[in-house]
């Protein structure tokens, strides 16, 4: 087990270098000069342009810039945002907690709605509820996230305003209520997958001999479904949800922008618009890390959930 984890950690280092270098090269192969964007309509004095170019190492070749960058990352320095004029590490420190909180609450939505509707579909196969859940999750997958976000804002923020269904439209200043719409929006796409996966694996497990045995020995339906079937059916579902968590942290760009959520996704959006390379690279590193760590945890958790799996 320890050897396995060490090997995985070493692989992570390789993935990290690969990802950052690709990103670095891609961004710097794009032609353009960020110093121009800074001046807007005012012409910058040559001395100013020179000072900026020197400060951000813009006159060095790409590989020297990359080496400098890796050296700085090792010291915990992700550079300074050109647009926001703050250290990227500080920006990330501020925004990561918000992204993680949103991803957690979206995962909660995913678990409750996804697994719930999956189980109901499976035990009431071909019933009205089954069809309803299949159709509604299909629709949910088809709806673009930003559009769903806007519609929910109009419905719960404007139409139901003042009623008990009214919810805050954006920002994070209204406590738990702030989480409701963004979490549902962010969870919409992954929930459908979870629901289907739960349904299929439940149906499979329900056909197993040991389930029939459990029913035959006179256990209640509830005990059969929840204690015997669901527990086994959940193994692939939990894996899937774990991997989704990585997606939710990194994939919240649209949701966070629509809801003015101060997370990493929103930083990426603005950084791309402003050509703010330090922030783009910094956030991507965060995403890469989130993915790698979540992946590792999921892989390790296999062994914990299913004693038959052994890593060597």
């Amino acid at each position: 087990m320890t050897r396995y984890i060490v090997r995985r950690l070493l692989q992570m280092v390789l993935v990290f270098f690969g990802a950052t270098f690709l990103l670095f090269a891609a961004l710097y192969l794009l032609p353009g000069d960020p110093t121009q964007a800074l001046g807007s309509d005012r012409t910058l004095a040559p001395a100013t342009v020179q000072a900026i170019r020197a400060r951000y190492h813009l006159d060095d070749p790409v590989y020297v810039q990359y080496a400098t960058y890796i050296k700085d990352i090792a010291r915990g320095d992700l550079g300074t945002s050109i647009q926001l004029r703050r250290p990227v590490s500080q920006i990330m420190r501020d925004s990561i907690p918000w992204s993680v909180k949103l991803a957690l609450s979206a995962t909660a939505v995913e678990i409750i709605l996804g697994i719930g509707s999956g189980v109901i579909s499976a035990i009431k196969r071909y019933s009205f509820l089954d069809t309803l859940s299949t159709v509604s999750t299909s629709v949910l997958i088809a709806i673009p996230v930003f559009w769903l976000g806007l519609m929910l804002q109009i419905l719960f923020g404007l139409k139901f305003r003042g009623t008990f269904l009214g919810l805050p439209i954006s920002g994070v200043t209204d406590g738990w209520k702030s989480y409701v719409l963004p979490s549902i929006t962010l969870a919409s796409a992954v929930t459908a997958v979870t629901a289907r996966l739960t349904r299929t694996t439940m149906l499979e497990v329900m056909r197993q001999d040991y389930v029939r045995t459990a029913s035959a020995k006179g256990l209640s339906r509830r005990a059969v479904v929840f204690k015997h079937a669901l527990r086994n059916a959940l193994i692939p579902v939990v894996t899937n949800i774990g991997l989704d968590f990585g997606t939710l942290i990194g994939g919240a760009i649209l949701t966070e922008t629509v809801y003015a959520w101060p997370g990493v996704g929103r930083q990426v959006y603005f950084a791309i618009i402003a050509h703010d390379n330090p922030v783009i690279i910094g956030s991507t590193i965060v995403f890469v890390f989130a993915f790698m760590v979540v992946n590792l945890i999921v892989d390790i958790s296999y062994a914990v959930l299913d004693p038959r799996i052994r890593y060597v």
Binding site: G157, L158, I169, S170, T257, V258, A260, Y269
Partner: peptide, 18 residues
């Protein structure tokens, strides 16, 4: 001064009376 990512979001907030 409430900071918004774009004017569409803030316009919604205006409509919501905030």
């Amino acid at each position: 001064y409430k900071i918004f990512p774009d004017q569409d979001t803030s316009y919604l907030q205006w409509q919501a009376g905030n």
